[in-house]
Design a protein around this nucleic acid. Structure first.
Lengths: 335, 335
DNA sequence: TTGTATGCGTTATCAA
DNA sequence: TTGATAACGCATACAA
């Protein structure tokens, strides 16, 4: 077992030509060879421990069983379950995931995609958050995660952000809140802008408008902290705050504590994502659970579908979300 | 820009032969071509947006710029920062990471490595936890993370578990604890066994032996919960519990609460890893911080070193850990 | 310093 | 149904 066996070795052992061995070993073309010789070839491959050289195959077929997966930062807790779902979905079809982080930097993303493009990848799953630009040539198989192009000409898998925000708004209104502020996520991300729009929309169906909106420049605890201070400096009257995501909500918690405001007695707070451990915060956070793993899994399935059938119209999958009610929301105080 | 430019296109545009273009574009052999023509070739490559076909290159050179990274489960919070560090370290050298999860399943690991082996990878970074067996042929470049072979013949990067455990023991003893129990991690993992041994060793230097040891079959909250019940059923006398990691410690928290025991008043608890959000638990957890990102980064550097120089003796890097003292440890009550 | 020739392992086309 | 042949794009030993 010095050098890995090639298809030629297999062919020799099975006393056929390499081309025949190739046909027998390839599920696509197996029926073009007689069952008897096919069995002999498969047997030979097994005894030799043959595994095809993917470089040679890629060179010949101009594709591979590897998919590029590009995300902003794996340390952001929403991405691990997504990537895990992607990986599981890919592996079922014998595909592997090539992972890259961009930190939300457009230049890093360009570099990374350029590097990946040289790798004969079968396709891409992009979970980067920026909304602008179609990142790859039209010939590439691409699935977007948590992100859609305005044109809608690229396949995508997203959670139903709008439904989640509407559920939050309905919950708050039901609890008697009428002064509802918003800590919006970055508006150059599709989640940020979608949730903001959904909030405006949801409030208006109840005849309300936001009691202040602050825009965070990042989905970070610090940005949430800063935005909360700004929001409550302008108008201290909001009795409920809808945060763009859980990290922002945690920053909001800290700012409220510093201002001497209690949650939920003085101000109700909601998040988005249902990150690990937000159920153990003080108070446990009311939020919207997104099926991260399923998003990744569906994205992988969708990409494989597109690879198999590139001309089919690009699907857009929207997965349902779930309202998770916890102690950070209480009825509005009569004050 | 229909089909990607090949080296032949570049050569044609620069009015040289493909071989010359290859030499000029390859850092290794750039000095074998005159500066003037080299500049012309580089310029041509740039205008054509040339990027080398990695499949062809791999086929020719029998290697690639891709490294396999194998972990148990990306959703375990210790791994994202490690993988991120790996990725950053690799990218500095133009390498990419092919990621795979095994769920700690030996068969899945075998399958995955078999699939990856067919991909002409330059090397492997293995963060799987099982201790047994050398997973790949001796010819492969491999770096182990959080794991060492008993033989020590494979390069590895680990945190100094023993020092961390010793620091915890010293802290507890200094606080007056003499009855210290242990919720050991799985003993088929190197971290589990190392921490257990270090605990025995650390206690013995203070003339103590453990006040009960329970072995968890997984690094999970549930396993920690079960083990705590078992530990305190046998002997309710432990005033401090050293958990194998943070997840086990959280399970311990839950079990203590259920038993009506207060932490830290009745029982002090320590964890290991300093996962996100354990500083926000009730009480905030005393634990040992492991430099996860740096471990990944150093693993990547070490692997690249070995790829460049395969015959050099395999290094074993041990990174320092840091004791994080929080409210889950209090002086032993005189009871 | 540059050009020529060859082969890496596989698959697709063509012929038998 | 099988065999022969060529080509994918690149890097290198050798010749010029």
């Amino acid at each position: 077992m010095d050098k890995p066996a090639t298809i030629k070795d297999v062919a020799e052992l099975a006393r056929v030509h390499a081309a025949t061995a190739s046909r027998a070993l390839n599920p696509q073309t197996r029926d073009k060879v007689s069952p008897r010789t096919a069995a002999r070839i498969v047997e030979a491959a097994r005894t030799l421990g043959y595994s095809p050289n993917s470089a040679a195959r890629s060179l010949r077929t101009r594709t591979s069983s590897v998919v590029g997966v590009v995300i902003p930062d794996l340390r952001n807790p929403v991405f691990p379950p997504i990537v895990r779902g992607v990986e599981d979905g890919l592996r079922e079809a014998g595909y592997l995931a090539l992972l890259g982080n961009t930190d939300g930097d457009a230049e890093r993303e360009r570099d990374l995609l350029a590097t990946m493009r040289g790798q004969q990848l079968a396709g891409f799953i992009l979970a980067t958050s920026k909304r602008d630009g179609s990142p790859l040539g039209p010939d590439a198989s691409v699935v977007l995660v948590n992100r859609r192009t305005d044109a809608g000409d690229i396949a995508s898998v997203v959670a139903d952000s709008a439904a989640g925000v509407h559920a939050l708004v309905t919950l708050l209104v039901t609890q008697g809140h009428t002064r509802i502020g918003h800590l919006a996520g970055p508006q150059d991300t599709s989640t940020g802008i979608e949730r903001y729009r959904a909030l405006l929309d949801g409030l208006s169906t109840h005849g309300l408008s936001p009691s202040g909106v602050e825009f965070c420049d990042a989905y970070s605890e610090q940005a949430g902290y800063d935005a909360t201070l700004a929001l409550l400096a302008d108008r201290a009257s909001a009795t409920a705050i809808v945060a763009g995501n859980d990290m922002i909500a945690l920053g909001c918690y800290r700012a409220l504590a510093e201002l001497g405001l209690r949650c939920p007695e003085d101000v109700s707070v909601t998040g988005f994502n249902d990150m690990p451990f937000v159920d153990q915060q003080r108070p446990p956070l009311t939020t919207v659970r997104i099926p991260h793993y399923e998003i990744g899994y569906e994205a992988a399935r969708l990409l494989l579908e597109r690879i198999a059938n590139p001309t089919s119209p690009p699907k857009r999958i929207v997965l349902p979300v779930q309202l998770i009610t916890r102690a950070s929301v209480a009825p509005a105080s009569p004050a």
